[in-house]
Each structure stands twice: as C-alpha cells, then as structure tokens.
C-alpha cells in the first residue's frame, strides 16, 4: 500500500513537471499578456517598462527556473487578471465546478444503473429499444447544442401553435408541447451557503439547486448514454456466464440473481471507466460552464486563454493534471476493495 502511494505521488510530480514545461514552452503562442493589461494608446516605452517589470523579457529557461523555484515552495505565481495568487483563484472557482460534476454524476448514477440493467434484462422490450435509440441520439449531440435547446425550452420557454386551437385535441397538443420556461439560465444564483474556506455551495437552497439543474443535465447528457450502454453490455455478458446459469438452476429469485450476483460483477469495469470519465468531465465542463456562465474553473481557464493570463493557465493545467492522477489513484484503490484479487503494485500475488 505504502509503496503504491509513493509510486503514485512520484508519478504525480512527474506529470506536473512535464505539464509545466510544456505550458511554458507554448506560452509564446498564447499571445501577449500585455495587450490585455494596457489600453491601445499606451506608448511602446511604457509597454517595455511593464514587460521588464513582469520579467517577460528574460529568456524562457530563466523564467522557467524562477517559476519552478517558487513552485517548489508552493507559489505558482500571481494571475495577471485577478492580481492574486493563481492557486487562490483556482480554489475560488473549483467548488463551482466540483458541484457541477457532482450534480451531473448523481444524475448519471440515478439514471444509468436502472436503465442499463433493465435494458439488459429485457433487451427486446420496446422501452429498452426506446432508451437505446435516445442514447444514440444523446451521445451524438454536442453539449453546447443540448445546452442551448435546454435554455430555450426550460428557461425562455416556447409557445407552440402548430395545431388548430379551436379543437380540443389541438389545444391539448399545443399546450403539451409548449413550455413555460422560468429555470435560471446562467450563473449560480444568490442563495449560496458558505461551507468552509472558498466553498460556497448551491446544494442547500432551492435557488441554488434550480440554478444547477440545466447545467448538470447538459453535462450529464454526454456521459449518461455512454454509461447506459456500458452497463447494458457488461450486464448482458455477465448474465450469460456460468455462475448466473447455475444460480438460475438453483432456483434463486430473479431479483436476487440480477441485482445481487450479476450487478456486482457488472460494476467492476464501470467503476474503472467511471473514474476516468469523471476526470474527463472536469474538462468537459469548459463547454458547459461557458454556455451557462457557470463561474467554475472551466470558464476561468477559457477566459485566461483569451486574456493570455499565462501564470493562471500554467497553474490550471498543473492542477488538472493532479486531479487526473488523484482520481486514477482513488479508482485503483476502490477497485482493490471491490475485487480483492487485484494487486495494486503489480507484484506477484
């Protein structure tokens, strides 16, 4: 166990080192941070003075060594835009992203397991076919389109008048297809509860939860179909295996077979994929957060790029790298718990 952790920590350090070097190497291509800091009419001399002050005139290796020296002491530099340490800025924005990912994950778990299991047990039922059809569509629609459609439907609202309103059925159809809107379409709202440090949570108020609905649904819309299909495929395979047939022959109830014996083995690969996908979801939030003006790290990162806020870009990439390493580690640990035959460090059993 200890050896495993040491191995992972050194891995994390290596990942962060590589990321920081790459981020530094490409910073010239990210544009000139000064353009964002001064008005158009500021003279060249003034610009040069600021550039000197920021240390932007030094050769890249010198800049990197200065950065690395500070980084070892836990200082990843100050953001140009926020005029604050980059880690503080990221910590301020991280809770919003984590809540969005948690919200989306909850939606995924609540819907994917029952739907996946059901369509594995009854693959021929029309409901299963319907779910499979919808999930194919869902997986192929880009997240920003989903988001825009959701906003139009549930935030702005649509009035449908395709059907004759002088007939009863026409009125009913018009009414059924029209939506009122009213759900918040941007931001996290004002009713946030302070938990600790920089964590203001939207989970404890109606307003906060309402703001979370549309972003979380759009974010989930990408991963949900994937998980339904994964669970379905795994489950169908498990249902064919010998020990399930044996259980059936033994006369166990269908519920016990499906949910106790089969589901357990189905979830093993799902956990592995799920862990990785949650890491990826942190990256997917960039799109979702932009559309919903969700004040998380994704939006922050995207704006940092348009502003050429290089210290913030470098710090964000390093933090994301760290998150990936951590989620992978946690997944491996959970995997070890669920399936004791797996040895973590790959030593002989």
């Amino acid at each position: 166990m200890l050896a495993f952790l040491v191995q992972r920590i050194s891995q994390a350090l290596l990942v962060m080192f590589v990321i920081s070097v790459i981020a530094f190497a490409i910073q010239d291509g990210l544009g000139d941070p000064l353009q964002q800091m001064v008005g158009m009419s500021v003279s060249q001399q003034e610009r040069d003075a600021i550039r000197e002050e920021l240390g932007l005139n030094d050769p890249l290796p010198v800049q990197y060594l200065r950065f690395a020296g500070n980084a070892i002491q836990g200082d990843l530099g100050d953001s140009y835009f926020y005029s604050k340490p980059t880690l503080d800025v990221i910590l301020e924005h991280l809770p919003a992203t984590l809540e969005l990912v948690i919200g989306a994950s909850l939606i995924i778990i609540v819907f994917s397991v029952p739907i996946g299991v059901y369509s594995a047990i009854r693959p021929q039922a029309w409901l299963s076919k319907f779910f499979m059809g919808v999930s194919t569509v869902g997986i192929s629609i880009p997240v920003f389109l989903t988001a825009i459609v959701l906003i139009q439907l549930f935030s702005i609202g649509v009035t449908v008048d395709w059907f004759p309103s002088d007939t009863g059925w026409g009125q009913w159809l018009n009414g059924a297809l029209s939506t009122d809107g009213g759900l918040p379409s941007y931001g996290r709202g004002e009713e946030l509860t302070h938990l600790f440090g920089t964590w203001y949570s939207g989970f404890f108020s109606t307003g906060g939860l309402m703001h979370l609905i549309l972003p979380a649904v759009s974010l989930a819309s990408i991963m949900l179909p994937l998980f339904i299909r994964l669970i379905r495929a795994e489950m169908m395979e498990v249902l064919q295996s010998d020990y399930i047939r044996y259980a059936r022959a033994k006369g166990l109830s269908a519920g016990r077979i499906n949910f106790l014996h089969a589901l357990k083995n189905t979830m093993l690969p799902v956990i592995t994929v799920g862990g990785v996908q949650i890491g990826i979801m942190v990256a997917y939030t960039i799109l979702t957060e932009t559309v919903f003006q969700w004040p998380g790290v994704g939006l922050m990162f995207l704006e940092a790029i348009t502003r050429s806020d290089i210290p913030l870009i470098v710090a964000y990439l390093m933090v994301v790298g760290l998150i990936f390493v951590i989620t992978n580690t946690v997944v491996d640990l959970i995997y070890g718990l669920v399936n004791p035959t797996v040895k973590l460090t790959g030593k002989k059993a």
Binding site: I156, P184, S185, Y186, G187, V291, Q293
Partner: peptide
C-alpha cells in the same frame, strides 16, 4: 452586474427574465 461573455447566454438571460 453579472459578466456573461457568451453572446447567446447573455441574450437568453434577458429573454428568460434572468
């Protein structure tokens, strides 16, 4: 004052009454 950079979102916020 809420900064909304994305054009579409800003317009939606107005149309939805946000």
């Amino acid at each position: 004052l809420t900064p909304i950079k994305e054009n579409n979102t800003r317009v939606s916020a107005l149309l939805s009454g946000g």
